[in-house]
Amino acid sequence: MTTPLRVLVHGGGIGGLTLAVALARRGHTVEVAEVRDELDALGVGIIQPSNALHVMREIGVLDACVAAGFAWEVLTICDPTGATLARIPQPRMDDAPSNNGIPRPALAEVLGEAARAAGAAIRFGTTITELADDGSGAEVTLSDGSSARWDLVVGFDGIGSPLRTRLYGDRFTPEYTGFANWRVTVPRQPEVRGVVMSTGNQTAKALLTPITDELMYLGAVFAEEPGFRPDPERAHEQLAERLTAFGGPVAEALSHVKDPDAVVHSRISQVTVDEPWHVGRVVLAGDAAHASTPHLAQGAAMAVEDALVLARSLDAEEDVAAALAAWEARRRPRAMFVQNLSRAILKEEMGAATTPEEDELLEIGIPGAAHVLVKPY
Rank of each mutant, 00 (worst) to 15 (best):
257 V>T: 01
231 D>M: 00
316 A>W: 07
213 D>R: 12
287 D>S: 10
253 A>Y: 06
333 P>Y: 13
338 V>G: 05
251 A>I: 04
293 T>N: 07
297 A>K: 15
275 E>D: 15
321 A>N: 12
281 R>L: 07
309 V>M: 14
328 E>K: 09
209 T>Y: 06
221 V>K: 00
343 R>S: 02
340 N>E: 14
334 R>A: 05
245 A>R: 07
262 A>K: 03
224 E>M: 05
275 E>A: 15
304 V>R: 09
322 A>G: 12
349 E>H: 04
274 D>S: 05
282 V>Q: 07
242 R>G: 00
300 A>G: 15
210 P>E: 09
352 A>N: 08
274 D>K: 00
297 A>V: 14
272 T>A: 09
312 R>N: 10
330 R>V: 06
268 I>S: 03
249 P>S: 03
294 P>N: 14
318 E>A: 15
223 A>I: 05
283 V>A: 15
238 Q>A: 00
327 W>I: 01
287 D>V: 06
234 R>Y: 03
330 R>A: 14
314 L>F: 12
350 M>L: 13
342 S>N: 13
334 R>V: 07
306 D>M: 11
220 A>I: 04
337 F>S: 04
282 V>M: 11
282 V>I: 14
234 R>W: 02
302 M>R: 11
233 E>G: 01
213 D>G: 15
353 A>G: 07
322 A>K: 11
248 G>A: 01
316 A>K: 13
290 H>D: 11
269 S>G: 10
288 A>C: 08
330 R>Q: 13
294 P>V: 14
296 L>M: 11
349 E>I: 03
313 S>C: 15
223 A>L: 08
223 A>F: 04
287 D>M: 10
241 E>R: 00
324 L>W: 11
317 E>M: 09
333 P>F: 11
338 V>S: 05
344 A>D: 10
267 R>S: 09
322 A>F: 11
288 A>R: 07
289 A>Y: 13
318 E>C: 02
308 L>Y: 14
281 R>D: 09
248 G>V: 02
